[in-house]
Write a protein that binds this DNA or RNA. Structure first.
Length: 600
RNA sequence: GCCGACGUAGCUCAACAGGCAGAGCGGCCGAUUUGUAAUCGGCUGGUUGCCGGUUCAAUUCCGGCCGUCGGCUCCA
């Protein structure tokens, strides 16, 4: 079975890669003077980058698709051949991007995407019809293996040559292709379904948050219902952090420039900080992170080894000037409330502290039922030392090894990726995917060996000597913005009761039941439940529909029978009808679900 | 920030090829009083994102700005 899947994967890969070649041929026929860059297969499809004399339009895509179908039906075989550097250069003398790729392959021993190739570089091409592309392959044997009714060109986008923003921007066409028409249809339907759970759409429908042009891009307004979710998440964080020995602190939203110079953030971060404001000759910045403030709290008095680990927690509000094109609903914003904490510990305590954080993550993920995530160990890259990263290779290697060891000892699977670290140390990032497939770092757990030194943070060890602590930065619940954006999609808006803004909607069948409904509401309130009464002049059916659309977990229908018996007829949003229950029984059930923070 | 598309009522969306801007939902008023996903009728609602240009006339064509979206870059 696993073997079969592997074959499927290989075939899909070849299919997608081959379709991208066919597309490139079609585009070059349309624009004979066009330049082609690269066109790899990707998850669910493929793309190809072009440098063309004019911008593409959606109508062009239809044209290109049409031509692609003709090419496919030409039943052209894909043939591979190896070419000498001279021949390759001759073949692509009018294709500057290909020439650059050839040079790269020969110089660095990499393939056309810059990945190293074992056994040195060989130049090869794949040809079908009259289109011959510099390519390592593999491909399907014949264009006829591409189902002409199972591919679709999806979008046109800009993309920098070699992914570098200093390079020219090319035009990228994204497409998708599947083994059959049915697979394609299913994929497109899946995309459609995913759009329905998009947090931007649900956030509006469920009245959780909004943006206002006059307030500013990336600055969300939390509506009352969203505010409830924030309150509940903070309550959870406070409970968990209290149990784990954290202490809560509070720090201001801005500080003098000196602080960020001192922390070392300013040179690395200036681009993404709001510009300074000046008062009486002093420059202040609104904070993009909480760490320097917490360091100052650590430094507020002499520390002993007996004080460690010291764990300072704060839901701190930070502001980062993300580039305009990078903003994305709640997932990428400019004002954010971070589930932040900094723990200061000795080297011996590091592993236990670090694993303590990881287990906190896992506890949260279990609670939320988050199963699809990847823990990524992000390490430094030698080339970035002194630029992107603090220039201390010895400590980089040492702390990276410490994290590896901690993860291995804790039996936590992780993936290691170079050149993704924070500037002050390695980190574990938790990667998740939004409904529409965008990847995000949800939470992060970072080692910091640089800032304690910059702030002269020390503690007196057992031997009476001053020692520098390590610092761990962590944010298991991410920021409220990203966490809630993610949870909206994760639950498709149907939050478990404890997070539901409205936990119970009381539905009087006729106006004469409103008084009883209000009594029920009072009792829910007294029990600490969030309930409201739908007293609109609608029929019960309409009231139920509205509650369903709002994804309210409990609908309590009350009519004559219920009023007479101090009962409520309980309907769940899953459409399960529990029938009449004594009010006290319902309240007990709801409170239990809330206490467990599970289900409805 | 870069490339491209888009922006019409609170929401979802119409308006031939420049010629007085429309529907459904919502909201308000009234009628109805109903047992598990939409009761009926009436009313209300817009300087068509903003600024400028072309034109007798601009939602429509052109330019600039703002915002959103799809990507790229970047990122909690």
């Amino acid at each position: 079975m696993a073997d079969e899947n592997k074959h499927d994967e290989e075939f899909l890969h070849k299919l997608r890669h081959s379709t991208s070649h066919v597309m490139a041929q079609a585009v070059l026929e349309m624009f004979p003077e066009g330049k082609i860059a690269i066109g790899p297969p990707i998850e669910n499809g493929f793309y190809y980058d072009f440098d063309l004399p004019r911008t593409l339009t959606p109508e062009d895509l239809a044209q290109i698709e049409k031509r692609m179908k003709e090419i496919i039906q030409g039943r052209y075989p894909f043939t591979r051949r190896e070419v000498s550097p001279e021949e390759a250069r001759g073949l692509y003398k009018d294709q500057p991007y290909k020439l650059e790729l050839i040079d790269g392959i020969l110089a660095a021993g990499t393939d056309e995407y810059g990945n190293p190739v074992e056994g040195g570089a060989t130049l090869s091409t794949y040809k079908h019809d009259h289109f011959e592309d510099l390519c390592r392959g593999p491909h399907v044997e014949n264009t006829s293996q591409i189902p002409a009714d199972a591919f679709k060109l999806l979008s046109i986008a800009g993309a920098y040559w070699r992914g570098d923003e200093h390079n020219k921007m090319l035009q990228r066409i994204y497409g998708t292709v599947w083994p059959s028409r049915k697979d394609l249809t299913e994929y497109l339907e899946m995309l459609e379904e995913a759009r329905k759970r998009d947090h931007r759409k649900l956030g509006k429908e469920l009245e959780l948050f909004t943006f206002d042009e006059e307030i500013g891009p990336g600055l969300p307004l939390w509506l009352p219902k969203g505010g409830i979710i924030i309150e509940e998440l903070e309550r959870l964080a406070k409970e968990m952090e209290y149990k784990a020995g954290y202490e809560r602190v509070r720090t201001p939203h801005l500080a003098k420039e000196d602080l960020y110079l001192h922390s070392g953030h300013l040179p690395y971060y200036a681009e993404s900080m709001y510009p300074p404001m000046e008062m009486e000759g002093v420059r202040y910045y609104v904070k993009p992170m909480n760490c320097p403030f917490h360091h100052k709290i650590y430094a507020s008095k002499p520390r002993s080894y007996r004080d460690l680990p010291l764990r300072l927690a704060e839901y701190g509000t930070c502001y980062r000037y993300e580039k305009s094109g990078e903003l994305f609903g709640l997932m990428r914003v400019r004002s954010m409330q971070m589930n932040d904490a900094h723990m200061y510990c000795s080297e011996e305590q590091f592993e236990e502290e670090f694993l303590g954080v990881v287990s906190l993550y896992l506890e949260y993920f279990r609670l939320f039922g988050i199963e699809k995530y990847v823990m990524r160990l992000s390490t430094h890259d030698k080339k970035g030392l002194g630029k992107k990263y603090v220039d201390n290779e010895r400590l980089w290697l040492k702390t990276e090894e410490m994290v590896r060891r901690a993860m291995q000892h804790g039996n936590v699977p992780y993936l290691e990726v170079a050149d993704e670290a924070a500037f002050y140390g390695p980190k574990i990032d938790v990667q998740v995917w939004s409904a529409i497939g965008k990847e995000f770092t949800l939470a992060t757990n970072q080692v910091d060996f640089a800032q304690p030194g910059r702030f002269n943070l020390t503690f007196t060890n057992r031997g009476g000597q001053e020692e520098m602590p390590l610092c761990i930065h962590r944010a298991p619940l991410s920021t409220h913005e990203r966490m809630i954006g993610f949870l909206i999609e994760h639950y498709a808006g149907a939050f478990p009761v404890w997070l539901s803004p409205v936990q119970a909607r009381i539905i009087p069948i006729t106006d004469r039941h409103v008084a009883y409904a209000q009594q029920v509401a009072e009792q829910l309130k007294a029990a600490g439940l969030r309930g409201d009464v739908d007293s609109t002049a609608e029929r019960m059916q309409a009231k139920i529909r509205n509650a369903q659309l709002q994804k309210i977990p409990y609908m309590l229908v009350v009519g004559d029978k219920e009023a007479a018996a101090s009962a409520v007829a309980v309907r769940l949003r899953t459409e399960e009808n529990l029938g009449p229950k004594p009010l006290a029984e319902f309240i007990a059930r709801a409170l239990e679900a809330i206490r467990m923070r599970q289900g409805i």
